[in-house]
Write a protein that binds this DNA or RNA. Structure first.
Lengths: 248, 248
DNA sequence: CCGTAAAAGTGGTATAGACAACTTGACATC
DNA sequence: GATGTCAAGTTGTCTATACCACTTTTACGG
């Protein structure tokens, strides 16, 4: 059941095994999962390794622990993901075909305002990338993106018609977006966007202002996404409410 | 420096010590923090304990790790918190005085639709609580909340004029909201809300649909919050982008 | 029958040690 | 000078063990 010479760590393998059990319906929500000691014995590993596996489940919101009682299956999430995922992935997850119409794709030098957001020197090369995003041919968002080119020079001349930006960053540039700072706003759609999104004047749009960080907390992308307010509610996902360390 | 007989675990004490160092400016962002072995030696603990301290920092987004290189200070966050916080806390954090006008406060029996959201039986007692939320006397949101009363029976007759709901849940009922599922929508303000929020007809509002979960993933609260779209942009905070376990 | 105490089982914290995977810099070699 | 190799230092994973804190169950005594 466990391959000790696999490249994937043992605790991940155990976590995956438990996830499979949950998905197969062996445990429903609220059910008690095997205790750490039991896992350790069953898979012939130390208790810490079993515990690490459980930690993985808890990070993903699949399970929760209670001291003295046990580890239990959490209620199923609304979506698979707990954080934020790429636009293309989100569309695909809904069973639709993502595509894009590129409006603007050009290199620009960072203005003072841009440089401040990216935390770089003014004049740094950025890629301006404005796109209409479509799902099964229907426009569902306009994205105004700026990308930190020095972190991914290969992206300068790529085509973004079909490709996911995140996938290109991962595969071509070994850049892994890991964090997002987000702020949301509602406003009335402007004439140009109304045309792009097939909306009537006077309707409301949802605007997400995002800063995307790499694992080293460099800003890789600044993007404003405009969604039709009611046609495409914006799903944030399940978020953990973090409480202060000091008060603990 | 470390109190071995304190009630707070050693690894938390070490984490707090490191946080203090960062706050005092001893390490600026990007700076390398002491290695796990160095921490272990300095505080006279095992390496695992030192590692647990670092894990605490990473969970909070204060630091990040790179295998083979070390542990480094993350860029400062926009806000203190990485998850979602209570409305009252958010207002206070901006240096304003939170208050409320209670529009409706009554017990209701869960309809089928409500029961489905709460994952309880229809007819379960709920507390309907509709409030205008104010900051320094200015209205900045309308909240339509439903609260799962069986989980917090003491809240039935409380006054919500000045008090934070989360604080009451914590202190009076030992209920700790830990997760939120959120969906956002933009729409045109209706006449009643325009009056409450001092808005003009035709302006856009931001609507947040939230499900709040306790640590055991029971639904404690379902709330729809209506914000003036542009006057009060909704800050989501820094979120970790979670990637699939299977693909690892 | 009831209440209390003990036992068993759970997760939480901690020690000591080991090897693997990865990064960097120094050094030797070509 | 360029290149490759090695060593040192880092985090990543894992074993084996121990005791603590908390919860539930069991057994005993009244």
């Amino acid at each position: 059941m466990i391959n000790r010479h696999s490249f994937t760590p043992i605790y991940i393998q155990i976590a995956q095994a438990i996830i499979r059990s949950v998905e197969e319906g062996q445990y429903t929500y609220g059910a008690q999962l095997p205790s750490e000691r039991e896992l350790a014995e069953r898979f012939n590993v130390s208790r810490l390794t079993a515990r690490q596996a459980n930690e993985e489940l808890i990070k993903r919101g699949i399970a929760y622990r209670q001291q003295g009682k046990g580890t239990f299956v959490a209620r199923p999430r609304i979506r698979e993901v707990s954080g934020l995922i790429s636009f293309s992935d989100e569309i695909q997850e809904r069973g639709l075909q993502p595509s894009s119409v590129v409006l603007v794709q050009q290199q620009v030098a960072a203005t003072d305002e841009m440089a401040k957001k990216f935390q770089v020197k003014p004049g740094t090369r950025l890629l301006e990338l404005n796109r209409i995003r479509l799902a099964d041919g229907q426009p569902i968002a306009v994205q105004y993106a700026l990308i930190n080119l020095p972190l991914c020079p290969k992206l300068a001349d790529k085509s973004f018609d079909g490709e996911s930006l995140y996938r290109l960053l991962r595969d071509e540039c070994q850049v892994y977006p890991l964090w997002v700072d987000m702020e949301m706003e509602a406003r009335i759609v402007n004439r140009q966007e109304a045309e792009w999104l097939n909306m009537q004047p006077g309707e409301a749009v949802l605007v997400a202002h995002c800063l995307t960080f790499t694992e080293t907390f460099d800003v890789i992308e600044v993007v404003n996404s405009v969604y039709p307010g009611n046609r495409f509610p914006f799903y944030i996902g399940r978020q953990r409410i973090i409480q202060g360390l000091a008060e603990k």
